[in-house]
């Protein structure tokens, strides 16, 4: 992606560099959302259904972490994964895996906090019915997550939006290495610093279009699901 090319030209000519960057962006952000969902959804549901001392404090912290600055998350993961850090021997710094980890840290609080709210609201509605049906704690969590699945799509999309839009964390832990850890957002930052503003804004438009497309897909899936499952 060098020379005097516009973003539109890159799309029209099927520039392989551009596609690799788009693919990596999606791979990293979607993987992070998947990991964050695996952690955040059960965690949020668990907090929604259990009562223990300090629960309120955890909810406040979780809500606050939704606004965790990406660069701070990135720095924390950087120090963790650096060769001089505790997990340095894994050799993950400056790899896509490190980027997925950093974005997972960013996205998990969003998904957990929104899941907690959604599941707690649903719990008020379902509580008696599930108690009457003698459903155990794990069964309750599973039932509530499954029955909240359409609302939880929104939580996942919020998480994806954050992951796809951020540059601070993946820049620090990924290093923006050409052909390896360069994504849409780090490319935009790089092209901006090179002064190629038209290419930067073009890439930005492509990024926005992709995010809109994914949201449209998820929304359509949600609507279809709701129609069939009420």
């Amino acid at each position: 992606m060098t020379g005097d090319t516009s973003a539109l030209q890159l799309v029209l000519t099927g520039d392989p560099g551009l596609y690799a960057i788009v693919w990596l962006s999606l791979l990293v952000s979607l993987s992070a959302v998947a990991c964050a969902a695996v952690i955040g959804v059960p965690l949020g549901a668990l907090i929604a259904l259990t009562r223990f001392p300090g629960r309120e404090a955890i909810i406040v912290v979780l809500n606050a972490l939704m606004g965790l600055p990406p660069v701070v998350a990135g720095l924390a993961i950087y120090l963790l994964l650096s060769r001089s850090g505790p997990l340095g021997s894994w050799g993950l710094l400056f790899t896509p895996a490190a980027m997925i980890i950093a974005q997972t840290v960013l996205v998990t609080p969003i998904i957990a906090a929104l899941t907690r709210q959604t599941v707690e609201d649903l719990w008020l509605e379902y509580r008696d019915e599930l108690a009457a049906l003698d459903v155990g704690p794990i069964g309750r969590i599973a039932t509530l997550i499954w029955d909240a699945r359409f609302s939880l799509v929104t939580a996942l999309l919020a998480g994806f939006g954050r992951a796809a839009a951020e540059v601070g964390a993946i820049m620090v832990v990924g290093g923006n290495i050409n052909n390896f850890t360069r994504t849409m957002t780090t490319s935009i930052a790089l092209e901006t610093s090179k002064g190629d503003l038209p290419l930067a804004i073009g890439l930005g438009i492509i990024l926005i279009m992709i995010i809109v497309m994914i949201n449209a897909l998820a929304w359509t899936a949600r609507r279809a699901g709701e129609r069939y499952a009420g």
Binding site: D128, E129, L133, F150
Partner: peptide, 19 residues
């Protein structure tokens, strides 16, 4: 028990019984 306003799970009628 059947409550005055029973809560249906967000699934098919058959799945509600299955549950």
């Amino acid at each position: 028990i059947v409550f005055q306003r029973p809560v249906m799970l967000r699934r098919s009628a058959a799945a509600n019984i299955d549950y």
